[in-house]
């Protein structure tokens, strides 16, 4: 197992380098640079030239790529053009804030989704099963950003219960610990729900389908014949089988959460990775774009590795094949 993971990580290194090269070239292809957008007020072409010099953006392409790659590999991600701060610290801050939102959303998705899926599979009434499937299919087809907008319009604008955006209130710094926590939770609810609801519905449909297909198999009939109770069959025999593909989904959901919540982060002004990447691209901030690409592609590669490792862990058949 350890050898397998090691091989996969080694194989990911050239892949990540290739990705960074592609993104570097894409950014280079973009017409204009951040220095030509420098706000007017006395800053003429000379100022732009000086800025280019200061940031080293006036050197030829191969030289820049070489020195950038060298610095990058030694851990120096450079300085953001637009925010005038080290890229590494910007990434760290945003990643932590995305992790809060995405982590909670991910946990809720799998918890609610699996629970609803099991419930639907366990229901003996066809009518209730239909109702669960219908509600889940509806929720699954709502775009998360639309759910976000509708909930803001209802709970924030109309009812005034929850804040519209941001992570904290302006006066959060002067609050006590408990009210600060409450404030943070209140800011979390809407973006978190918008992320969770459609995804949880998708997982619920998936788990239900898997459970149903297992419940029809011989192993369940055998278990029944041996005198297993309904609960045992549902939770032990079917669920272990049904969780296998769900576990794979978990790994594949990882990059989606780093990047996929971007639209919601922008809508809710949540200062996370997605919003950072959005701002970086809009301001043509090459070092920051590359930093975001770096984090994002690591998430993709790590996510697919995680998915494979988890499915090997969950499926004894795959474990044997690996040996």
């Amino acid at each position: 197992m350890a050898g397998y993971v090691g091989r996969r990580i080694l194989a990911a290194v050239p892949l990540l380098l290739l990705i960074l090269t592609i993104v570097f070239l894409l950014v280079e292809m973009a017409p204009g640079d951040p220095f030509s957008q420098e706000p007017g007020a006395g800053a003429g072409p000379q100022a732009a030239g000086r800025l280019r010099q200061a940031f080293g953006a006036d050197r030829p392409l191969p030289e820049r790529f070489g020195s950038w790659l060298g610095a990058f590999l030694s851990g120096d991600l450079g300085t953001s053009y637009s925010q005038r701060r080290p890229v590494a610290s910007l990434l760290r801050e945003s990643l932590a804030k995305t992790a809060v939102l995405a982590g909670i959303a991910l946990a809720l998705q799998f918890l609610w989704g699996t629970a609803a899926g099991i419930l639907a599979a366990a229901l003996r009434s066809r009518l209730w099963d239909r109702v669960v499937v219908l509600v889940a299919s509806l929720l699954y087809s709502f775009p998360s950003y639309w759910i976000g907008l509708v909930m803001v319009s209802l709970f924030s604008v109309r009812l005034g219960w929850l804040p519209v955006s941001q992570m904290h209130s302006v006066e959060a710094a002067s609050m006590g610990a408990w009210s600060r926590l409450l404030d943070a939770v209140r800011h979390l609810i809407l973006p978190c729900l918008s992320l969770t609801l459609p995804a949880a519905a998708g997982i619920a449909l998936y788990v239900r389908e898997e459970m149903r297909s297992i419940l029809g198999r011989d192993l369940v009939r055998n278990a029944l014949a041996r005198g297993a109770t309904r609960r045992e069959i549902l939770l032990k025999h079917s669920l272990t089988g049904a969780l296998l593909p769900v576990v794979t989904l978990l790994g594949l959901a990882l990059p989606g959460l780093v990047g996929g919540s971007a639209v919601l982060e922008v809508l809710f002004a949540w200062p996370g990775m997605g919003r950072l990447a959005y701002q970086a691209v809009l301001s043509r901030d090459a070092p920051l774009i590359l930093g975001c690409a770096w984090v994002g592609s690591i998430a993709v590669v790590a996510g697919s590795l995680l998915a494979d490792v988890l499915s090997v862990w969950a499926d004894p058949r795959l474990r044997d094949r690996l040996k």
Partner: peptide, 22 residues
Amino acid sequence: MAGVDALRSIPRLLLYLLCATL
């Protein structure tokens, strides 16, 4: 397939954003 994997591993949204501003 290595090329396909590399393309798949670039965060999709970043790719759209880059192309949309390019």
